Simulated scan of single mutants.
Amino acid sequence: MVTHSLLSLSIKSIKSLAPLLDRVLIQRAKVVEKTASGLYLPSAASQAPPPEGTVLAVGPGAPRKDGSIAPVSLKEGDRVVLPAFGGVPVKVGEEEYHLFRDSEILAKLNE
Rank of each mutant, 00 (worst) to 15 (best):
K108D: 03
P89D: 02
R101Y: 14
V24H: 09
L17K: 02
R28G: 13
G38Y: 01
G61W: 00
K15F: 04
P50T: 02
F100E: 01
P51A: 04
L99D: 01
L74A: 12
A18Y: 12
P51K: 03
E33V: 15
V81I: 10
E95R: 10
A18C: 12
L20C: 10
H98Q: 09
P60H: 03
S46W: 03
I26D: 04
P89A: 06
L74D: 12
R101W: 14
T3R: 15
L6F: 06
V81K: 14
K91E: 02
T35P: 09
K12H: 07
L74M: 15
N110C: 11
P89V: 04
A36S: 11
E96T: 07
E94N: 12
D78G: 10
S5W: 07
P51M: 05
K30L: 10
L109K: 09
S13W: 02
K12Y: 04
V24S: 08
A45K: 13
A57V: 03
S37G: 09
V81M: 13
S10T: 03
S16K: 12
A44I: 10
G87M: 00
K91N: 00
V90S: 03
I105N: 08
S37K: 13
A84L: 12
K34W: 02
I14Y: 01
R101C: 07
P19R: 05
A62G: 11
H4E: 15
S37C: 10
A84G: 08
L21A: 15
H4K: 13
G38V: 00
V92I: 00
G53L: 01
L82Q: 00
V58S: 11
G59R: 12
R28Q: 05
S5R: 12
S46L: 06
V58L: 11
L109G: 05
K30Q: 14
E95A: 11
R101T: 10
V55H: 12
D102P: 04
V32E: 09
V80W: 07
L6S: 02
E96S: 02
D22Q: 09
P50Q: 05
R101E: 09
S103N: 12
K34N: 04
R23Q: 15
V32Y: 06
I26R: 09
S68P: 12
S73L: 06
E52W: 05
Q27T: 08
D66C: 07
